[in-house]
Design a protein around this nucleic acid. Sequence first.
DNA 1: CGCGGAATTGATAATTCTCAATCAATGTGG
DNA 2: CCACATTGATTGAGAATTATCAATTCCGCG
Lengths: 228, 228
Amino acid sequence: MGKLAHDHTAEDCVELVTIFQNLAKVDLETVATLVTHHHYKNGEYLFSAGDTADSLIIVAHGQAKVFQMSANGKEQMLRVLQTGDFDGEAALFSNSEHNSFAQALMDTDVCQISRQDFQKLMQETPEMAVNMVNALGRRISELEQQNTEVTTASVESRLASYLLETSAGLDEEIFTLPLKKKDIATYLGTTPETISRKLTALANQGMIQKISNNKFKILDSDRLMMID
Amino acid sequence: MGKLAHDHTAEDCVELVTIFQNLAKVDLETVATLVTHHHYKNGEYLFSAGDTADSLIIVAHGQAKVFQMSANGKEQMLRVLQTGDFDGEAALFSNSEHNSFAQALMDTDVCQISRQDFQKLMQETPEMAVNMVNALGRRISELEQQNTEVTTASVESRLASYLLETSAGLDEEIFTLPLKKKDIATYLGTTPETISRKLTALANQGMIQKISNNKFKILDSDRLMMID
DNA sequence: CGCGGAATTGATAATTCTCAATCAATGTGG
DNA sequence: CCACATTGATTGAGAATTATCAATTCCGCG
């Protein structure tokens, strides 16, 4: 019944993910038995709006975009789930449906725990609940930050922040944008055309370098931060 | 040492507040012993940026606005704490400073629990931690919703939503906006002038009625919801 | 090699901001 | 209780940013 020790994906789930950090070894083993994992190829859906939302979904490796569909059929980007990020909705509210979509942007490994198991886990492992509270708190800060930016800063400034965030934590000088311009646009609250123009503007001002369509190099991060 | 049974404010704290709901009677009594309470008059500050953030702050009665100060000295509204709402920052992250201000908008009663006590409470009362996770989850949903609106909808639409939210849950036909136009403006990501004009526009279209400067009446909530 | 989605570019329109002036409301001290 | 000061709200006119619509162009892929 138990997972094998060489089941790397299951290990990733409990090791990589912040909400499972600082847990006692026993608890980690418990978690491992409750977790199932799935693989998604680029473009496949982790879940869709209307699906029953009955489990916590954690990205063990890869990237997935989470977006909503508005009444007129337009996509609204919510966020990109990176390795270690999770989608909370399902685990938090009882018997709800997903109101958003999640789609893999590359080959992606996902861990899942059913809401029931997860709630029990929190009851039995307060450490775990505290971790969860911290993770949610961090997400709230992010969202408040993002809200402030959207209501305050110009598109050029928001785009600059986005480039800095996206490139952060990468060793590589040159980085690839995971999203299409259309998605970046709805994420930043603007249009693909404006993204195009502003990227060109930033390049002309010597702050970034366009390598290809979706590959860029940051040339002057200080100046990017100062925009607006 | 224990609180008296007639200490209404302390009771309010544990009874009104969602994160203390569904707790066993014993736990409620524990909570009551850990809580201190304070009263603030209109305009007084609950905390300021730079203050040590070492306790969870819960509004037992009244209203307070939470805002940040940008580099150039402009206020950016973050949210209005209503009765039962809390400011999490302090309780969640260790030894941090407040990066925002909270100011009472009317006579306001506040309950406080030190972070230390609150963390211990979560460890010992998993129910409590689960409540907290739920509360934070709800806040995340709100913020995501708000984000989507700001990036998607016109000012007129956002203002309409704001009016509907603000008036919701009030029996009274006529309601008073708790915030000054300046604050509503930064909250919605626009300017006081635009707020003024859009309110006039909504009134001209017969969707709302201006009673006075900050008193309004919703005439056609259906149409308000449909804007944009 | 050519098809098709994505990106770019251009021209124009719409929304919202900014700045400035005026007006209203609120509170204060004599 | 009134004149004055102060702060907030409104209105107008012009400017700026960004959206929209349309036309190419680019690029990956079968």
